[in-house]
Computed example of a mutant assay.
Amino acid sequence: MGDRVDKEEVRKANDVHVLDYLHAKGETLERQGHYYRHPEHDSLVIKDTGHWYWNSRSKGGYGAISFAREYHDMTFQEAVRDVNAQDLSKTFSRESERHTSKEFEYPLHQEVPKQENISRYLIEERKLDPKIVAALIRKDLLAEDKLKNGVFKWKDSAGKIVGGDRQGTVKMDNKRGSFKQIMANSKEDGGFRVDIGTPNKIALFESPIDALSYFELKRPENIRLLSMSGLKDQSATAGIRDLIKDCKERGTAVEQVIFAVDNDAAGEQFVERWSNYLTSFEVDKPKNKDWNIDLVEAKTPVRQKEPKKAMEMER
C-alpha cells in the first residue's frame, strides 16, 4: 500500500462518525447530555456533532480520522486505513439524533428513603465528617438509589436539579476502584455545587468528594464549591458566570476564583490554559494527588514506632 491513500479512501473515512468508529473499536463511552465521555480519560469529550476535545492535552478536532491520529498516535494514512477497516454500524449516530433535544429528568422513583450505604461509604471509607454528610442529605444534595449508589445532585441557582453524579459504594476491580457515572442528559456545563455562607468566592474541583474533602480540611467561609466532574471548561465558565450573576444581584462582586484541581499533569495543564483567560486567580493544590487522599491521610493514625531498646555495649 505504501504511504499513500487515494481520494475515495479519504472520502469514505471522512463520512464515518467518530462515535461509530469508537464503538467499532470496542471503546466504552458514557453519555452525558449531548456528549460522550471516555471512562478512562475524564477530560476526553466527544460530542454528538462529531467534534471531540481532549482537555488535558489541549487537542481537538472533528471526525474519526483526526481522532484516530491523536488517540492511537497514527499517521494520516494509518488513520484512514484503520477507520475504513472497522465493521461500522452507525449505532451511535442514530442514537445521538434521537437524544439531542432531550432534557435532564431526575429519576425520583429510583431513590430509596434511607441513605445508609452512601453515608457509610463517605464516612468510613472517604473519611468525611458525619455532620457534613448529614447536612448534604438534609439539603437534598445527596441521595441513594435502589442500586446502592450515592447520587450527588446538581442544582442551579434556582434550586432546580439539572444533573447528577452517581457514586458506587461497593469496590470494583477497575481503574477508579468503584462505579462512577454522570447521569444521562445532565446539563453539559453543570456540576455538583455547595454554597457555604453567602458566596463571593468559588473553588473548582474534579469531583464532589474532592470538593467536600477540601471543605473539611480548610473550612472556608462564604464560598461556592463546584465540582466539574473532570476538567470541563464549560463547567468552569458557567460556574464563574453564575457566581458573578448571583453576586451582582446582591450588590457585591466576586472576590476570588480558586483552582483546586488534582495535583497532576492534567490539572496543571488545565490551570495553565485558564491563565490565558483570567487575569487574577489562585491555585490551591492538594499535597497528594487529590483532596480526598489528603483527608484520608490526615485522619489515618500514624503507627508509632516501638522505642528502640537500649543496647548495652561491652567495654
Rank of each mutant, 00 (worst) to 15 (best):
I132L: 14
A134N: 15
D140K: 15
L142F: 02
A143T: 06
E144H: 05
K148T: 12
K148W: 05
K155H: 05
D156A: 08
A158I: 13
I161Y: 04
R166K: 14
T169Y: 00
K171A: 14
D173F: 13
G177P: 01
F179P: 02
F179L: 14
Q181P: 06
I182C: 05
M183T: 08
K187D: 02
G191D: 00
R193S: 04
V194I: 12
V194C: 04
V194W: 00
T198N: 11
P199E: 03
K201M: 07
K201F: 04
A203G: 02
L204R: 01
E206R: 04
S213A: 09
S213P: 03
Y214G: 07
F215A: 07
E216G: 07
K218H: 14
R219N: 13
E221N: 15
N222M: 11
R224H: 06
R224A: 00
L225I: 08
L225Q: 03
L226T: 03
L231V: 09
S235P: 02
S235W: 01
S235Y: 01
T237M: 15
A238F: 10
I240Q: 02
R241N: 14
D242C: 13
K245P: 04
K245N: 13
K245G: 10
D246Y: 08
C247L: 06
K248V: 07
V254M: 13
E255T: 14
V257F: 01
V257M: 11
F259L: 14
F259A: 05
A260R: 00
V261I: 15
